[in-house]
Amino acid sequence: MPTLESLFLKLKDVKVIDQSIPYMHYTPIDLSVWNTNLTQMDLKNPQDFELFIENHLHKNNAKIAFGGYNEERNLYDNRTLFEGEQSEKRNMHIGMDLWIKAGTPILAAVDGIVHSFNFNAGSGNYGPTIILEHCIDNQIFYTLYGHLALESIEKLAIGTAFRQGEPLGTLGDSAVNGGYSPHLHFQIIKNIADYVGDYPGVCSKKDLTYYLENCPDPNLLLKIK
């Protein structure tokens, strides 16, 4: 049986952000511990962070900033949700973030049905979240869409079908998205276990090997150059 990753390579024209924005208007962004520009910022202030994102987009003549898979970050420091002993501290990001303004349409990556959804409230959390279940060549996997607007889940129902590229919801602002500058957290999950409406998007270094295997690089689907 082919691997899930090899199946992803065959999929074409996969988008999770407004179809009208071509990849030529995307730019990578480094939010890792190695980016010294971030040491001058209050990373828990969404207004400052949003200005940082806007300046990055302007400088690169872009509309969307993307990146973050397997990235070690300070962004989660001093947030209770991610605290723990040094070996248990969760600071390794295992999805892809796509940074753009609140209200931007979010699309289903591929054909699927709603597995679950939830409002994951609290500082640093996902806020409104949708998880889709997919089946390609008899292989089941899931995609998670975090930091959405509340309206995205208000009338949603388990089992609702979405076609590839169909609007799934819109991005939320810092008031509902866990206190972040607006962005989509997009993640692929092979085995979702017993999680409902939620799944870790940040892990500890100790658990990184497992999560990188269970959560492949989203760019295998999106193919952003």
Rank of each mutant, 00 (worst) to 15 (best):
P2Q: 01
L7C: 05
F8Y: 00
L9P: 02
L11F: 00
I17E: 06
D18C: 11
Q19E: 15
S20I: 03
P22S: 10
Y23V: 07
M24R: 01
M24A: 04
T27D: 07
W34I: 08
N35H: 01
T36V: 15
T39G: 07
L43R: 09
K44M: 13
N45W: 11
E50F: 12
L51A: 14
L57E: 01
L57N: 07
H58Q: 15
H58R: 15
N60Y: 07
A62M: 03
I64C: 07
I64R: 02
F66L: 14
G67K: 06
N70E: 10
E71K: 03
L75K: 00
N78L: 05
N78H: 05
T80W: 05
T80R: 14
T80G: 11
F82V: 04
E85F: 00
Q86H: 05
E88C: 08
E88H: 13
R90V: 09
D97M: 10
L98H: 06
I100A: 07
K101N: 12
A102R: 12
G103E: 05
A109Q: 00
V114N: 13
S116Q: 11
F119P: 04
S123Y: 08
P128A: 14
P128N: 10
T129E: 03
I131T: 14
E133M: 07
H134A: 09
Q139G: 12
Y142F: 14
Y142W: 03
L144Y: 02
H147Q: 11
A149E: 12
K155C: 13
L156N: 14
F162P: 05
R163L: 15
G172H: 01
P182Q: 14
L184F: 13
Q187G: 00
N191I: 12
G197W: 02
C203F: 10
K205S: 00
L212I: 03
L212P: 08
N214Q: 09
L220Y: 02
L220F: 00
L221D: 06
L221H: 01
K225G: 11
